[in-house]
Design a protein around this nucleic acid. Structure first.
Lengths: 220, 220
DNA sequence: GTATATTTCAAACGGTTGTTTGAAACTGGT
DNA sequence: ACCAGTTTCAAACAACCGTTTGAAATATAC
């Protein structure tokens, strides 16, 4: 049973660092010092390994986010920052899965969203779609003045900011002179991320910001 | 000479849609209906083709952004929205490179930033680093109240939002019911993007938003 | 201790990748 | 019409990919 978990942990690290497509099973098994065939034996396929690596975090994260949302969704008014801060502890709790788990999972999430023509996204939606739609409706509650379409884009912008930052957080931490340990620095990033996303999402509707004057800028 | 340009245009579309790693030369040459070897003949290698596909947009974008920044960087005070709106026309002018050029280039940018262990980023930095640092210093001017480190993260968040949105804009446009033509919809996205990024970037410094109360959330 | 089930292992499989080759086809100038 | 220069082409190259195989090795149960 040790080999299976060992493969999983090595795979998570390599997937998070280089992406799913650019990490071969041979790299994983070489680093993990196990036989190549053991991946297919324990996980069935590479796809199975990928799903397992994000799955074990999702199955802890989803109920945590669920209960956090449940505790605020019946309030009369919610700010978007409150929503964001409510779900943060769930992510930080992933440290209990493994050391550095929060960082690894977030980077996996970023990779998974950018890469793969949907098989990971599909897996997440099928297994944790309820939590996702619950989050969406709470956000909608926090931003009642936005139209449906604006909300759609804002949510994606927020997701994009989040996910992209996480996908490249490793490189960014190395660039920035921050010399915190792994847990502290992922906290620090979230610390910086929440106000950015929060304020961005509650920006006034775009139409009133640059009405007219815009179509003229296009060059034929 | 027609083959070379034809390869380039088909390659751009496939790169933008599926990413660089997930687009093979055989896919490109099949769609373009040219011989496989012609890519290596005209561009030397796949890496050469990738650089050529973003290069021809960059060489038009860079001077455009440069002059836009020059026209505002000597003002006494600049808002971040003004900075963003100043560089937007440069991106929209990429429509003159080819129809749909703005959308294609932005998606290429997103792909390039997320994928590849740096060879495209390195290429951009080496050839257009001046414009990049110029943009950075103007942004710094627009947000004087932020510390160096906060600025670093804010800029990356903005870049992440921008780039990630563009990388998946194709899919998003299909999801949203927006039925504008190609040029209009990329304008529409930018339309929505600017206030989000603008307000996010000028959010108050994070420390005053969730002082204390945060470290306790970490689960060991 | 033997029989049974589980796990490991080296080797090979078929397929795809980017790249190279050298001959064939085409080009424009004289 | 001829010849150089450029461009195309089918074919093969070596390297890598995920996966499968079937025999060894190991662990588990009686």
């Amino acid at each position: 049973m040790s080999t299976k978990l060992h493969i999983l942990e090595i795979a998570e690290e390599l997937f998070a660092e280089h992406g799913f497509a650019d990490t071969s099973l041979r790299q994983i098994t070489t680093v993990a010092d196990v036989n190549l065939a053991s991946v297919n034996y324990h996980f069935g396929s590479k796809k199975g390994l990928i799903q397992a690596s994000v799955g074990r975090y999702m199955e802890q994260l989803a109920p945590s986010v669920d209960s956090a949302l449940a505790s605020i969704e019946d309030r009369s008014s919610i700010s978007i920052q409150e929503v964001l801060l409510a779900i943060v502890p769930g992510f930080l709790s992933l440290e209990s899965v493994r050391v550095g788990g929060t960082s690894i999972f977030m980077r996996l999430l970023g990779r998974g969203y950018a890469e793969t023509q949907g098989h990971l996204r599909k897996y997440v939606e099928e297994n944790y779609g309820g939590t996702l739609s619950r989050l969406m409706s709470v956000i909608k509650l926090a931003l009642p003045e936005l139209s449906e379409e604006e909300l759609f884009w804002r949510i994606h912008f927020a997701l994009g900011t989040f996910v992209f930052t996480m996908a490249s957080s490793q490189a960014l931490q190395e660039i920035s002179e921050a010399d915190y340990d792994s847990l502290a620095s992922i906290q620090y990033i979230i610390h910086q991320l929440v106000p950015f996303i929060g304020y961005g999402m509650e920006a006034p509707a775009s139409s009133c910001l640059m009405s007219g004057s815009f179509r003229d800028l296009a060059v034929g």
